[in-house]
């Protein structure tokens, strides 16, 4: 079970003077249940790639296959869109319903899943950390962070196997960002694959199993957070800056202190401490 992308090329404004290849010859694999982050500079094609994963954009060349459904088969598009939930940037802007409950049942109704809508709404609200008292409130009267969580819940409502989020932390303050990432981690642990598009390398390094770095519509590097840090320390990708803690880890190993990779300061301090005690012995 995976999203598999082979030799994907996408060209905007084909046949006009504005023609530009947003993605060229991109191949990658997103395993079910994993957490993959797609990082890249503005204009690197990461949002375009995200929209290919649930067939909102269709490839000009190449192939996108979700589980065993290909986007080249028109009748499978709806099922692909259900399997791969896509949360756009600033998803709170897409809210429209009178109550949170109506908002949450919009997706399930579109796919004809009309059984137990109340229980379902309650369940997804709980997944994003809101309780049932929100069900009858107007989505327009919630706070910014709550709106975003309702919007994410509205995508979760059709129980997608993959959740693709485009810059989910944009415009949130530090505590809001931390809370959202914790929720996403919980959703990921319950079996839903998370694909996070971001330009924040620090979050990507901290949360992901795998990182795919895009540069000018091509895959510059893909691998584990540790590999990504090693790669980027010798081949800088324009627009992506290694966070200082990752930089520190690279510098330490240059000075001969090889410790396990971590982006968490306390884990790193512990690792350094253990290493030092080890060498003293």
């Amino acid at each position: 079970m995976s999203i598999s992308i082979k030799n994907l090329t996408h060209i905007y404004h084909r046949g006009t003077p504005l023609e530009v290849a947003a993605l060229s010859d991109v191949s990658l694999e997103i395993p079910g249940g994993s957490w993959t982050s797609i990082v890249g500079h503005t204009g690197s094609g990461k949002s375009t790639l995200a929209q290919h994963m649930n067939a909102l954009l269709l490839p000009d060349m190449g192939e996108v296959v979700v589980d065993d459904l290909s986007v080249s088969s028109k009748k499978d598009l709806r099922e692909i869109r259900r399997k791969v939930g896509l949360v756009f940037q600033y998803p709170e802007q897409q809210l429209f319903a009178e109550t949170v409950k109506d908002e949450l049942s919009f997706g399930p109704k579109n796919w004809g899943m009309t059984d137990n809508l109340d229980d379902l709404s309650e369940k997804v609200l709980d997944q994003v950390g809101l309780d049932r008292t929100y069900l009858d409130r107007s989505p327009f009267k919630l706070s910014g962070g709550e709106k975003r969580r309702v919007a994410i819940a509205s995508v979760l409502a059709v129980s997608p196997s993959y959740l693709v989020l485009d810059e989910p932390t944009a415009g949130l303050d530090a505590s809001g960002r931390g809370y959202l990432l914790k929720l996403l981690n919980k959703i990921n642990n319950s079996g839903t694959a998370v694909v996070m598009v971001t330009h924040d390398l620090e979050i990507a390094l901290d949360m992901s199993d795998r990182i795919i770095a895009l540069q000018l519509g091509k895959v510059a590097h893909s691998g584990s957070p540790r590999d990504t840090v090693l790669y980027m320390s010798s081949n800088p990708v324009p627009g992506l800056l290694l966070p200082s803690i990752a930089d520190l880890w690279v510098k330490l190993s240059k000075y001969g202190m090889e410790i396990p990779f971590s982006c968490d300061p306390s884990t790193m301090a512990k690792n350094i401490d253990e290493k030092r005690r080890g060498t003293k012995k």
Binding site: R81, G85, F88, Q93, Q94, F106, N110, W111, V158
Partner: peptide, 11 residues
């Protein structure tokens, strides 16, 4: 953008 967002929710 909004059309795409609603399409993604099955509209």
């Amino acid at each position: 953008r909004i059309m795409k967002a609603q399409l993604a929710r099955g509209a």
